[in-house]
Design a protein around this nucleic acid. Structure first.
Lengths: 106, 106
DNA sequence: ATTTTGAGAAACCAAATAGTTGCATATATT
DNA sequence: AATATATGCAACTATTTGGTTTCTCAAAAT
């Protein structure tokens, strides 16, 4: 059972759940109202998100509030970092080209 | 056939392919040497990456060089933006708390 | 005390996924 | 011209996925 962040955000419903609970913690029932799948389906998504630690639970009576674990989201950001470096360096190269064109005009 | 960037990067082999061709364009054969799956399996991954426009082809004779489409990678970055906003604002809130503590000491 | 409500677990199912092997085709090499 | 190489495509397979329905259990509400 592969269970990493990237696999977790592959599903659009899960991405929507993540976006919702990023604002404030929500119960499975409250979440399920936002989608046209059953409460149990949402529950399964929440389990997957919990297993890869993208989400943490906060039980209050019989309700369980799910909250986004922002730290874990940074893992994606960290992976993107290597590409951000590349596209920034490419941008700088373009910058140099433009600068050279300018100098040649003088 | 759902085929978006998030689903594309869910597979670890595909993420490895992306990382490799980010440096410079590579042929399917050259790529397959880096993994312990068949050349055809790599080819299938490349097709998926092509379909969601994360990768573009550059045919040279009988060889096809695959290159990363950096622009498309920014789509992920764009999605992360909303969460980056949140974690930065939380960080500022912490900042304020620390600042207040400092002021109270005076 | 009884009923309602919120939630997880289990069993089941259809579709998608990631891999394989075998084949076809176009381009190089000899 | 014959052979070797690079690649894509098709058919097949085992496993995973995302969903359902049914059941159980604990906490609130009546």
């Amino acid at each position: 059972m592969r269970r990493d962040v990237f696999q977790a955000i592959a599903d659009p419903t899960r991405r929507a759940i993540i976006a919702l609970i990023a604002i404030h913690a929500m119960t499975p029932n409250a979440l399920a109202n936002h989608f046209d799948v059953s409460r149990q389906a949402v529950s399964k998504h929440l389990r997957i998100l919990t297993e890869c630690e993208l989400v943490k639970q906060d039980q209050q009576g019989r309700e369980i509030f799910y909250q986004l674990e922002l730290e874990k989201m940074k893992e994606i950001d960290k992976w993107l970092e290597q590409f951000r470096k590349i596209w920034e360096s490419r941008f700088n190269q373009l910058d140099n080209v433009l600068a050279n064109l300018k100098n040649q005009k003088k």
